[in-house]
Design a binder for these strands. Structure first.
Lengths: 109, 109
DNA sequence: AATAGTACTTGGTGATACAAGGTATTATAA
DNA sequence: TTATAATACCTTGTATCACCAAGTACTATT
């Protein structure tokens, strides 16, 4: 039954990751590895193969932009930052999230 | 940009629907159309083509069982009810849901 | 030079939700 | 008696998302 639970956890997070990324980048710009680290701190495990395509998707949607920055510790880093369009979308995502929380509460009672 | 928002809402709900069904059937048995109605009351729009396969899936996983019941208003109804296995899974789903809520709160601050 | 560490990228797979259409039963209207 | 409407169940095809498992590239260390 463990695989069922794991799958549930994975599926529940689906679509929320996108929201999390915008919330993180709304605070300050960051590169992929540091985003993964912050998500891990918040108890959400995400792997590279999930995050990179998502960042590219959001960039192509005009929600993010990025710039390269040299690093003394390895290859250059791609720092992502949120755009105005991204910021305005966060408001709608906040609303969508509140709706979901409220839906679960309604059904539970 | 509206299609982006709609897609976000749809994606955020992904995986939560399964949780909602178990919560609803944990209160009392129900047939598909009545479940859709209850979800709609809770502000979650779900269509038949989504719900029927999901109920069948959960039944095949041993989380639900069902019985047929005649109706005076039309064709017979398939009443679903939660099994012991389903009940024990709800506990784990509650936990997973709490984790997610807590994750979002952590990232937001 | 070779290895280890960091960072970015891509192709294939599985799961879920939705759109659109179909089947079957009962009640009502023509 | 047929036709229509309403209710209820089911299926096929499609899009999206997250994950796994690789691969590429740059820098520092040995």
């Amino acid at each position: 039954m463990e695989h069922i639970v794991d799958n549930i956890k994975s599926q529940m997070r689906k679509g929320l990751l996108e929201y999390c990324i915008l919330l993180i980048l709304n605070k300050k710009e960051a590169y992929a590895s540091s985003i993964i680290e912050e998500l891990k701190q918040a108890n959400m495990i995400v792997v590279e193969g999930t995050l990179y395509p998502l960042l590219i998707r959001q960039k192509n949607q005009g929600l993010l932009s990025y710039r390269w920055e040299e690093s003394t510790q390895g290859p250059p880093r791609k720092y992502y930052m949120i755009t105005e369009k991204g910021k305005s979308l966060i408001g709608e995502m906040d609303l969508a999230w509140q709706e979901i929380v409220s839906t679960i509460e309604t059904i539970r009672k």
